Amino acid sequence: MNTITTVRELRQLLDEERKAGRRIGLVPTMGALHAGHLSLVRRCVSENDVCVASVFVNPTQFNDPHDLETYPRTPERDAAMLAEAGCRYVFMPSVDEMYPETDTRVFNLGTVATVMEGAFRPGHFNGVAQIVSKLFAAVEPDRAYFGEKDFQQIAIIRAMVRELGLRVEIVPCPIVREADGLALSSRNARLTPEGRQVAPAIYRTLTESRALVDTKTPDEVKAWVTERLNAVGGLRVEYYEIVDSTTLQPIHAWADSPEPRGCIAVYCGEVRLIDNISYK
C-alpha cells in the first residue's frame, strides 16, 4: 500500500493504473476509521481493480470550530487498518494541499440541501461538495463509496455530480452497527461511558416506531419518537424528520412517498449523533 500526500503524485500513479485498463474505486473518509469505513473499503476492493481511500478532516464542512478541533484523528492507525483491508493507495493530504487558496465555489444543490442537516448546519453541505469534488478531480474514480448513515450526504453528492457533469457511479452502502444497534461513527469515540450506555436508545426507538405506521401519521410518529428520546436522560433530539428517500422533503401521509425514511440528529451529552431508518 502506498501513502500519498500530494495531488500531483496521486494523479501520476493513477494515470498509470488507468493506462493499464484498471478500474478505480474511491472511499472518501475523514479518518478515525471503524468497521463501517472498512466495510466500504472491502466492497470497493471487491468491485474495482484499484481501491483508493482518502483520509482528510475537511475544515470547510464544519460550521462549529469546536467540532473541528475535537474531531478524532488517528492517521497511523487508519493507515494500518486500510492496508489490512486491501487498499492500494491512501491519500493523506494537508489542508494546504487541498486548499492552496480559499475555495469560494458555491454549489447549486437544490432542495435536498435545505432541510435537516442543511437547516441546522449552514454551509456544511457546500463544504462537503467542495472537498468531494476536489477528491473526484484528483482521483477520477469510476465508483465512489459512501455509507448510508450519512443518508442526506449521498443525495448532496449526487446533486453535485449532476451539476458538474461528472462520470462517477455513487455507491451507497448499508449502515454498520454495534451489537446494541448504535450506528458506527467516528464521533462515538467521544461519548462518555454514560453516553455510550444511553446512545443505543436512538436506534431502538426508531425501530420500535416502525410498528406505528398502520395507526399513526408521519407527523404523529415524529412526535412519538421525539418525545420518547427526549425522555431519556442525556439525550436531546435536534430534529427528527420523515421524508421521501429521493427528494428528502417531509411527508405528512405515508402514501406521499414510495420509500419513506426517518432521519434524526440527537445530542448525546455534547456529542451529536445522526441515524436513519426506512419505513418501507
Rank of each mutant, 00 (worst) to 15 (best):
residue 17 E to D: 14
residue 17 E to P: 04
residue 18 R to V: 01
residue 19 K to L: 15
residue 21 G to Y: 02
residue 21 G to W: 08
residue 22 R to S: 03
residue 22 R to C: 06
residue 22 R to M: 11
residue 23 R to E: 14
residue 23 R to P: 00
residue 24 I to C: 12
residue 24 I to A: 04
residue 24 I to M: 03
residue 25 G to S: 12
residue 25 G to P: 11
residue 25 G to I: 05
residue 25 G to W: 11
residue 26 L to Y: 08
residue 26 L to T: 08
residue 26 L to M: 14
residue 27 V to F: 12
residue 28 P to H: 10
residue 28 P to Y: 09
residue 29 T to Y: 03
residue 30 M to L: 10
residue 30 M to W: 05
residue 31 G to C: 10
residue 31 G to V: 05
residue 33 L to D: 06
residue 33 L to A: 11
residue 33 L to G: 13
residue 34 H to V: 08
residue 34 H to T: 09
residue 34 H to P: 09
residue 34 H to R: 07
residue 35 A to Q: 15
residue 35 A to T: 05
residue 36 G to T: 12
residue 37 H to W: 12
residue 37 H to Q: 13
residue 39 S to W: 01
residue 40 L to P: 08
residue 43 R to F: 02
residue 43 R to A: 14
residue 44 C to L: 06
residue 44 C to N: 05
residue 44 C to Y: 02
residue 45 V to W: 08
residue 45 V to C: 14
residue 46 S to I: 00
residue 46 S to Y: 00
residue 46 S to A: 15
residue 47 E to Y: 00
residue 48 N to G: 11
residue 48 N to L: 11
residue 49 D to M: 04
residue 50 V to W: 04
residue 50 V to M: 09
residue 51 C to S: 15
residue 51 C to Y: 01
residue 53 A to C: 15
residue 55 V to P: 05
residue 55 V to R: 05
residue 55 V to I: 15
residue 56 F to S: 07
residue 57 V to W: 01
residue 57 V to P: 10
residue 58 N to S: 11
residue 58 N to T: 01
residue 60 T to H: 03
residue 60 T to Q: 10
residue 61 Q to C: 06
residue 61 Q to F: 06
residue 62 F to C: 02
residue 63 N to P: 06
residue 63 N to K: 07
residue 63 N to Y: 10
residue 63 N to I: 01
residue 64 D to G: 01
residue 65 P to R: 12
residue 66 H to I: 15
residue 66 H to E: 15
residue 67 D to C: 11
residue 67 D to Y: 14
residue 68 L to K: 09
residue 68 L to Y: 15
residue 69 E to W: 02
residue 70 T to W: 02
residue 71 Y to H: 01
residue 71 Y to M: 05
residue 71 Y to Q: 00
residue 71 Y to G: 04
residue 72 P to N: 03
residue 73 R to E: 04
residue 73 R to V: 14
residue 73 R to A: 13
residue 73 R to S: 12
residue 73 R to F: 07
residue 74 T to K: 15
residue 75 P to F: 13
residue 76 E to M: 13
residue 76 E to C: 06
